[in-house]
Amino acid sequence: MLTLSTSTAELINTFLERLWLKQGVSQHTSSAYGTDLKKFYQFLLEYQGEAADLLQVETEAIENYLLWRRQQGLSPRSTARALSALKKFYNYAVKERWCSVDPTTRLRQPKQPQSIPHSLAESEVEALLAAPDLDDPVQLRDRAMLEVLYATGLRVTELVQLNFSQVSMQQELVRVIGKGNKERLVPLGESALELLQQYQQHGRPALSQKNSDFVFITRRGGPLTRQAFWHRIKYYAQRADIRSHLSPHTLRHAFATHLLNHGADLRVLQMLLGHSDLSTTQIYTHVARERLQQLHASHHPRA
Results as ranks from 00 to 15, higher is better:
T152S: 11
G153I: 10
L154G: 02
R155K: 09
R155W: 12
V156N: 03
T157R: 09
T157P: 02
E158S: 04
L159Q: 13
Q161L: 03
Q161K: 12
L162S: 06
S165L: 08
S165N: 02
Q166G: 13
Q166H: 14
Q170V: 06
E172Q: 14
E172W: 10
L173C: 14
V174D: 11
V174G: 05
V174N: 01
I177D: 06
G178A: 04
K179E: 05
G180Q: 02
G180P: 05
K182A: 01
K182H: 12
E183W: 02
V186C: 11
P187L: 00
P187F: 00
L188R: 11
E190Q: 12
A192Q: 02
L196W: 08
L196P: 10
Q198D: 10
H202Q: 05
H202T: 06
G203T: 00
P205G: 11
L207T: 15
S208K: 07
K210Q: 12
K210S: 14
N211A: 12
N211Q: 09
S212N: 09
S212A: 03
S212I: 06
F214I: 08
V215T: 07
V215G: 04
I217R: 05
T218R: 14
R220N: 13
G221E: 15
P223T: 06
R226C: 04
Q227E: 07
A228H: 15
F229W: 14
F229V: 01
W230V: 14
R232K: 11
I233H: 02
Y235H: 15
Y235E: 06
A237Q: 09
A237M: 14
Q238P: 14
Q238S: 15
A240L: 07
D241H: 11
D241S: 14
D241Y: 00
D241W: 14
R243N: 15
R243A: 09
S244A: 08
S247N: 07
P248I: 10
T250F: 00
T250K: 00
L251R: 10
R252E: 15
R252H: 08
H253W: 10
F255N: 00
A256M: 05
L260S: 09
L260F: 12
L260T: 10
H262T: 03
A264S: 07
R267I: 03
L269V: 01
L269E: 02
Q270T: 00
M271V: 09
L272G: 03
D277W: 07
S279A: 07
S279G: 02
S279K: 01
S279P: 00
T281K: 01
